[in-house]
Computed example of a mutant assay.
Amino acid sequence: MSSVSVSRVLLVLITVSVFWVLVKLGFWQLARAEYKHQWQATLAERQQQAPLDYQQLLTLIKPNKPADITPETALLTGYRLSVKATPLQQPLLLLDNQVYQGQVGYLAYQIFEVTAENPWILVELGFIPAGNDRQELPALAAISAGQYELTGRVYQKLANPLSDELHPEIHADKPIRFQNINIPALALLLKHDIATAVLQPDNVPQHSLPQPWVPIPLSAQKHQGYALQWFTMAAVFLGLMGWIAYKQYRNDTRR
């Protein structure tokens, strides 16, 4: 086979391979967009349902299968929950590296007990900005002792495959700063079972912190935009390779 024939074959193989990959990525983004549409509809449907009680929530949580490794469709995110619960004398918890409306800070949590026999539940207090000095944690008072009726949304997080460790920073008489919502690891740290779902109450007692709600980090519209980008890249690449092939053909015919 001549060198000209080899170069033509290589050009065709490269063109087909790269074009196929770009188009496949575009269709993958469209599939993700459709899935996000369905997931948004599921969340909206759950918001219209009557609130669960705590026993119903625990029943929905699959035993021996941590929520952070289940697929999104198995998560309990979006269900409403109504409980009577008591804040415990445990340190406040600060989830690090959170951003809300351009501010960097923490999501604050407090541990509550529903009944002595059941797992504790993690209750989100809201977002609190970080100070300029990372060594200084923000001042935030824990909800005082007493029984409170809490009603709100629950959520669970999928594990980040690159980083899902708790990485707690423990200091006496200070909140625990941690890096990822890893409830099984938190339960080991606090030596007590904790339900693998977080409650975000509609009204947090004694606090009025903002409560970000981002159950779908990347919207269907974003995926559709990315799909358009991949398809555009495929078309541009195909046009470019066609132009290169045409120039090569013209050069060969002149020899």
Rank of each mutant, 00 (worst) to 15 (best):
V204N: 11
G102L: 09
P138T: 02
S82A: 15
P138L: 07
I170H: 04
R8T: 00
G26A: 06
T232W: 15
I194S: 05
D53F: 05
P175F: 13
V114S: 03
L58E: 00
K191Q: 12
G239R: 05
Y155R: 12
V114A: 07
A130E: 07
E113N: 12
H167S: 10
Q47V: 05
L22F: 07
V4Q: 12
Y249A: 14
Q103N: 11
V23D: 09
L58P: 00
R255C: 02
E34C: 06
S2C: 09
K65Q: 09
A235F: 10
A50K: 08
K157H: 07
L189M: 01
Y35E: 13
Q229N: 09
P217S: 04
L209Y: 09
V198I: 15
N160S: 11
V4R: 09
E149F: 08
V16P: 03
W213C: 03
T77Q: 10
A67Q: 07
W213Q: 05
V104G: 15
F237I: 09
Q38E: 15
E72F: 10
L43W: 09
V214W: 06
A33C: 04
A85G: 02
A195L: 05
V83C: 08
A139S: 14
L94F: 15
A74L: 14
P66N: 01
S3H: 12
L60P: 03
V16G: 02
Q103W: 04
P184T: 03
L60S: 03
Q248K: 13
Q147I: 03
Y226F: 13
Q40P: 00
T73H: 14
D202A: 07
D133E: 11
I181P: 09
G131V: 03
W213A: 01
L13T: 04
L52T: 00
L57I: 09
I14R: 04
L189W: 01
